[in-house]
Design a protein around this nucleic acid. Sequence first.
DNA 1: ACAAAAGTGTTCGACTTACACCCATGG
DNA 2: CCATGGGTGTAAGTCGAACACTTTTGT
Lengths: 212, 212
Amino acid sequence: MSNTIRSAASAEPRSSKVSVDAVTLRFNPQKMGVEVAVTTRTQEPFTGQLALPGVVLLEGERLAHAAERALRDKLGWGAPRALGQLIVFDEPARDPRGATLSVAMWAVADGPGGTWVSLDDVPPLAFDHNRIIEVCRPMLAEMLWRNLDFTRALTGPTFPVSTAIALTESLTRTVPDRGNLNRRLATIPKLRVSGREVVRGRGRPGATWSWA
Amino acid sequence: MSNTIRSAASAEPRSSKVSVDAVTLRFNPQKMGVEVAVTTRTQEPFTGQLALPGVVLLEGERLAHAAERALRDKLGWGAPRALGQLIVFDEPARDPRGATLSVAMWAVADGPGGTWVSLDDVPPLAFDHNRIIEVCRPMLAEMLWRNLDFTRALTGPTFPVSTAIALTESLTRTVPDRGNLNRRLATIPKLRVSGREVVRGRGRPGATWSWA
DNA sequence: ACAAAAGTGTTCGACTTACACCCATGG
DNA sequence: CCATGGGTGTAAGTCGAACACTTTTGT
């Protein structure tokens, strides 16, 4: 019950620290795949190792703000194109400094600085960040073409069919049927076919879709 | 940006406190509806007001453990029948004592002590707890008949059809079609019809379903 | 001509909704 | 007998997945 009476000043029980870790994605048109942003840690623990950009949540700070701060401080970027909450990781031993909750947030952003690694080939990361990515990946795959903020941020205002395919393949780890994907895109009210200019090497040029 | 440099000792930036609030449900066979557990607060702030059972997360404590502790300390109960994570509420002003994150957890439990209120008639609660219930209710409705741990905990090992209907109606706010609900139950592998004994007043006696 | 990429058509099964109709019980 | 709650049958609509086939390009 811990009903010990505490002296007046600062009698509050210690709570776990809270960090906010951002699973930040972008679509790489060259490699035709989704990538996650990681940074090299400059502080203990795990100095020199790669990790998801994360910060300790400040008092009174909103989660979205902390995630933006992580991207700004660790990667030098401005506001992400979209942002949202995933889940809380609460294993007590996940941080060697002491028990620290991690609120995993997704983000879509881009910019110079920072290292991008393919979702399919994530190197060993600090803390439990490999596990975070592993657990969050199906959640992100669920969001594609459903959460339009997320999807639009990934595709940009207009995108060729090839991007739609690569995006889906990259997040779900399965090759989508072109026909089915086309029809799925057609059911999204905010999406329209705007032309068919994009030629990716050999093969028939694909249509370009654009967001309303 | 609050980049004030702090003196060496205990240089860690202050983080928001973390509380864990439990949205604890049970099915009331008398009222044929789902109810939420609330307690009267004995401490500031909001002393004397009703609130969801919640505790401050201790250092190194797991979220599930904190939720169980909330039920134990505030309601005197043992372990809940099922438990899980919902979402984090991070409005800085949600707690007048200072910024406090609230990790909302769902639980299914029962016992003497504590007050049960109907999901459809939740009185004004302390903090933003009315909002928490409002936001979490659709998530709980989604879990019914899908998350089997959750559902089994709500129904108990065996239950009559009338319970299945009342449960669905109570969580989704819509009256389900009896036939469709029957077929849905039949598709759950762990569920079987075990007999048809239950008579609820007038009308044809309903079948009893039981979990494998 | 042929391979590669894109697009169209069709089907199948699972799931959801809706609704019409039959069954058993208490008053 | 009839209102009430329970159960079966059937059909429309949606959705995802699978597959056959055509179209347009580069080499």
